[in-house]
Design a protein around this nucleic acid. Structure first.
Ligand SMILES: [Mn+2]
Ligand SMILES: [Mn+2]
Ligand SMILES: [Zn+2]
Ligand SMILES: [Zn+2]
Lengths: 144, 144
DNA sequence: TTACCATATTATAATTATTATTGTCAAGTA
DNA sequence: TACTTGACAATAATAATTATAATATGGTAA
């Protein structure tokens, strides 16, 4: 089962032009279908279980490579750290102000982008960040 | 003219509950009406011209105080660093992918927030980030 | 299959952004 | 005046990320 998933990821990236290594495969495997929007550290903490010699630099290098090749999205919606999204289909996010969890929103809100072009801004994309409190954080009183 | 502006800022924050100091006044003065969405460093670089003994910690402390009291907004739309917006009126932003300049967008796009409540997410606000290229960056070819 | 080489990995140093700590001082107050 | 409070600055500490350099390895061409 795990092996099968591994083969799928390997299959998917085999002819992608970049060198496949066990480390990269582990990172890609971790990201495949992952909707948690992990940070570099979370990715590192996960893959190091399988590859104890894994370097943090490898995680950053691989992420940088994947982002530059349009395989992974870099999200700037969490202050202080980047978070990564393997889902390249344009979509939006629900962000919990308390625990910083991030959920996907796939609705298309058909935003009128012309306000940008009015100002000679060439708009190539947009992202809606919905801020609020996730189900498990609504109970807890401290909404700092 | 400068003195007059200074008095306006002083007037505005006089009865706000926090102690007015020359350093804070300089920071507030710099932020007043500023639409550049500066980072802490840019604020520091500006105010230190008037107050050469100004500490970076004072900038961060003052910003933290202003954010916690709802006087200034903290923006998480630039990877790696926070940027600050003294305009508390809800609005959106145009972000240049190349030079990272940020422009205000005050249109109300009347987004349907119900997609959040469907998932038991309590949505308290939203922000649209329009990504693209500012007028001066469209000329330059390298759109990395 | 093997030898080669461009590139990946690792350890580590350096940088950048931010937060925490601490001693000092100045304004307000009993 | 003595006491309290909070702001300031210096500086240390931490977190996230990027850069450097030596070594190892995947992919390929002979
Ligand atoms: Mn997502
Ligand atoms: Mn703004
Ligand atoms: Zn939450
Ligand atoms: Zn620009």
């Amino acid at each position: 089962m795990v092996k099968f998933a591994m083969n799928l990821v390997l299959e998917k990236y085999k002819d992608s032009g970049f060198k496949m290594t066990p480390q990269r495969l582990a990172i890609l495997e971790y990201l495949e279908g992952n909707t948690e929007h992990p940070s570099a550290e979370e990715i590192y903490r996960s893959v190091i279980r399988k590859f104890p010699t894994m370097s943090f630099a490898t995680v950053y290098n691989t992420l940088e490579m994947l982002v530059s090749r349009g395989r992974v999205m870099e999200l700037s919606i969490d202050a202080g750290k980047k978070r990564f999204d393997p889902d390249m289909v344009p979509h939006h996010h629900l962000i919990c102000r308390r625990c910083r969890c991030i959920e996907d929103v796939f609705e298309d809100f058909s935003i009128d982008v012309s306000s940008g072009t009015k100002r000679n801004f060439e708009v190539t994309g947009h992202h809606i960040a919905f801020y609020g409190f996730c189900p498990s954080c609504q109970d807890k009183n401290d909404k700092g």
